[in-house]
Design a protein around this nucleic acid. Sequence first.
DNA 1: GTATTGACTAGAATAATATTCTAGCATATA
DNA 2: TATATGCTAGAATATTATTCTAGTCAATAC
Lengths: 205, 205
Amino acid sequence: MKQKKGRHTGSESRRRDIINAALACFSKIGFSETSMDDIRSRSGASTGSIYHHFKSKEQLAAEVYIEGIGNYQEELIRVLKGCEGPREGIRALITHHLTWIDENAEWSRYLFQKRHSVFMASAEEKIAAMNREFGQKIVKFFSRHIAEGALRPLPPDIIISLAFGPCMEITRRHFSGHAGTDFHEAAELLSEAVWRALSAPGADG
Amino acid sequence: MKQKKGRHTGSESRRRDIINAALACFSKIGFSETSMDDIRSRSGASTGSIYHHFKSKEQLAAEVYIEGIGNYQEELIRVLKGCEGPREGIRALITHHLTWIDENAEWSRYLFQKRHSVFMASAEEKIAAMNREFGQKIVKFFSRHIAEGALRPLPPDIIISLAFGPCMEITRRHFSGHAGTDFHEAAELLSEAVWRALSAPGADG
DNA sequence: GTATTGACTAGAATAATATTCTAGCATATA
DNA sequence: TATATGCTAGAATATTATTCTAGTCAATAC
């Protein structure tokens, strides 16, 4: 083999190129619809290079997913930490969700698409662990305010579903092409509604 | 070719066999993970027969999807029609959702998995049309009660997100293996919470 | 300075699997 | 009986994920 052509060097940047190309392809046309060849040509990497960095298409998809979801969760937790009252927390949670979706369109489109799908077992575990940890932090926030009597004493999964479910549904509709209430307004309305759903009678946040 | 072996006959039943086999495979191991060969061996149909009845794997998946979602929507609308008050309606909607999920585990697992994915353009349109019609009926129900002052005057997409989002999220968690509140109890709690979120001040259902 | 090593890359070869093709069978109808 | 039509079977083909072979490059050892 001769290999005199422009050879890319520097492993980390090549790796990033591949992840970026994969994200672009996946979010644009979907996981199963993009071929490794699409990623190859878009990233400029060769087949061999891609498989050197990533075990398989699935693992590549998983790493992209983990990077995205990690960022989302991290930022949300940080925002939540800055909140004292429960009402403020609920608002922050919902606003952050919609803002993040809006500002990270490519990521969120992909995360949403790939949300229910099956990854390799190894990634599955890591994602589960991330979600578990994330969930615990969220639950801890709500528990505190339940204990203080500001929120109703509902089971954690019910609370999480009430808080995140509407956001998720708005997001899903957004990605399905429904032009609805704009995100800023939606954040307002959902925050208030979720507060009504979760707050204890008499609580004012 | 000789073809003396047990030959299946009767087109409609063969078609059903294929759909059933596809549903079983898809719901168990997912769409991309099942090969046409899996469906072939499970259904007992030949490759040629499958492609005679269905244009492609995608179209097969779409027909399965449409059958399932159609049944879900139809039953929900029927249940909703039997409801007078808004509170009763919200409860019926949520209870029906969770009951249907529970009683149609295979279907719902598949519908949920396939929810965000891309079908062939033709199916895409049909599904969009079904969803549009379904959405309109739901919105009509809510609009009536908004007009009567029982529900808050929120935009349709916000209302739908508040009503369905929590159900969807509970369902998603269920399918992700989270053991949470059982469906009967969850239906109670979510119905009340969603009522609080949507009802106008002073309304009692 | 040269040899060696290990990370990385290229592109061809292979394997898995969706789809198409060709032809046989079965039933209805003229 | 003849013919048309719908259905089925299974081989052939095409597409695409993955593996394999043969390098290149940079750093370190000698």
